[in-house]
């Protein structure tokens, strides 16, 4: 067997040796790998439980080597809550698309976040429903053509896209929210760091963490993989700017509880001592 130091590239252990079912050029493959690398780096595969709800990533329960639970459409944060409440010392992540997280599952998303569930949400935002063949998503851009917005998303009738990181960063339960992408090696490395940090925040009990990955869907967008990244850079990144939207530790707090108390310093009830 080759010396470990000579190996430049190999499959993460947290990713099973099976072929995935994603389309060629799909960003899911990259992000699945980054999550697995983070699990390996932190040595947490044995105590990690992943939740795969409905969407293109649903079959990822076959790819990850940790225990996996498939969930109903949109309900991953509720399922993750149930798991985490039974196993508070384990690591729980959900892997959700934009329709799942921001449309049908918005209530579960917002409430898991505001409860400060110690879970990590990996959110793939590619502005379209992939599994069902390219319908308008809650994050589809204004004027974006999809199967169900054939004349382009008309904001006067279909309304505006949702900026998830911005929305969730207003909630006291959120410890860490960052938007990343995976179009270049540099951005892939940044995304990996963010995912690892999100898991670390969970392990340290800092609070709820979400990593939004701005991604592509070459098949349903009708581009080559590289063309899709071009379109993404030109149109999605101006609408969904990359960056850290909330980081309670960077703000100088130990966890969400300290940060939330400081934010509500004027409210005597919030700052009542003891008696819990």
């Amino acid at each position: 067997m080759a010396e470990k130091s000579n190996i430049l590239f190999e499959r993460p252990e947290a990713l099973l040796p099976v072929q995935n079912t994603y389309c060629p050029g799909c960003a899911h493959g990259i992000v699945n790998r980054l999550v697995a690398e983070a699990i390996d780096a932190l040595g947490i595969e044995g105590k990690t439980i992943g939740i795969a709800p409905v969407g293109c990533s649903v079959t990822s329960y076959n790819f990850y080597a940790c225990d996996m639970i498939q969930a109903a459409h949109g309900r991953a944060p509720a399922v993750a809550t149930g798991v985490k409440r039974v196993l508070p010392d384990h690591v729980v992540f959900s892997y959700q698309g934009d329709g799942d997280l921001a449309s049908i599952g918005m209530a579960e998303t917002v409430h898991a976040a505001t409860r400060g569930e110690k879970i990590t949400v990996i959110f793939i935002n590619n502005a379209i429903y992939g599994m069902t063949g390219g319908q308008m998503a809650p994050t589809s851009l204004p004027n974006q053509t999809t199967q169900t917005s054939p004349y382009g998303r008309d904001v006067t009738t279909a309304g505006f896209p949702i900026r998830v990181c911005e929305l969730l960063s207003t909630l006291d339960g959120v410890a860490y929210a960052e938007r990343v992408t995976v179009d270049t090696p540099k951005n892939v490395r940044k995304a990996k760091k963010a995912i690892e940090k999100a898991f670390t925040y969970q392990i340290d009990g800092v609070g709820y963490s979400i990593i939004e990955v701005v991604a592509t869907c070459p098949t349903n967008w009708g581009f080559t993989p590289q063309g899709a990244f071009h379109w993404m850079r030109d149109n999605m990144l101006p609408y969904y700017p990359l960056g850290v939207y909330k980081d309670v530790k960077a703000d100088g707090y130990k966890d969400i509880y300290e940060a939330a108390a400081a934010r509500a310093a004027e409210c005597p009830l919030v700052n009542k001592e003891g008696d819990r």
Partner: peptide, 20 residues
């Protein structure tokens, strides 16, 4: 004891807890 945001969430929390 957890008061869920909805009946839908509550049954899915049950699903998660039962899965463990």
């Amino acid at each position: 004891y957890l008061q869920a945001e909805s009946e839908v969430a509550a049954i899915n929390m049950v699903y998660g807890a039962a899965a463990t």
